[in-house]
Computed example of a mutant assay.
Amino acid sequence: MGRRHHFHVDHLGHSVSVTVEAGHSAVVDVLVDGKETARVGIGHERQVALPVELPTDPPTTATVRVAAGPGVPRCLLVPADGGDPLVMAPRAY
């Protein structure tokens, strides 16, 4: 079992959280407003882009980009409307 890293950002009034369990094969969990919307294992490439949908009216799409290493993982929320990527801040659990 690897070390867990947690990231968070608020966007358009909604909470987006990511947990990256680092190790030989990393696992990424994405939650929107506390509900799991994606869970994926990352192989040797150590990077993944996951689509998410924020429950706005109408729904807003974005992409969570995760780089699981080397070193400390990093996460970005990339709005689909072409806005600037939002750095997801690390947070302690």
Rank of each mutant, 00 (worst) to 15 (best):
M1I: 06
R4M: 03
R4I: 04
R4Q: 14
H5L: 04
H6Q: 07
H8P: 00
H8L: 08
H8F: 06
H11D: 09
L12Q: 14
S15C: 07
S17E: 15
V18Q: 07
T19W: 05
T19R: 15
A22Y: 01
G23S: 11
H24E: 09
S25Y: 13
S25L: 15
V27D: 09
V27W: 02
V27F: 05
D29A: 08
D29M: 01
D29T: 13
D29F: 10
V30C: 06
V32H: 14
V32A: 10
G34R: 11
K35P: 00
T37V: 15
R39W: 00
V40D: 07
G41P: 02
G41I: 00
I42Y: 07
I42W: 00
H44F: 13
H44K: 11
Q47Y: 05
V48W: 03
A49T: 02
V52H: 04
V52R: 04
E53G: 12
E53N: 06
E53Y: 00
E53K: 13
E53R: 14
L54V: 01
L54P: 05
P55R: 11
T56Y: 06
T56K: 10
T56E: 06
D57M: 10
D57Q: 15
D57E: 14
D57Y: 09
P58T: 12
P58Y: 13
P59K: 12
T61F: 03
T61Y: 06
A62Q: 03
T63I: 04
V64S: 05
V64W: 01
R65M: 07
V66S: 02
A67V: 11
P70C: 01
V72E: 15
V72Y: 03
L76K: 12
L76R: 14
L77V: 03
V78P: 03
V78A: 01
P79R: 04
G82S: 10
G82W: 04
G82N: 11
P85R: 08
P85N: 06
M88N: 05
M88W: 11
R91H: 15
Y93S: 10
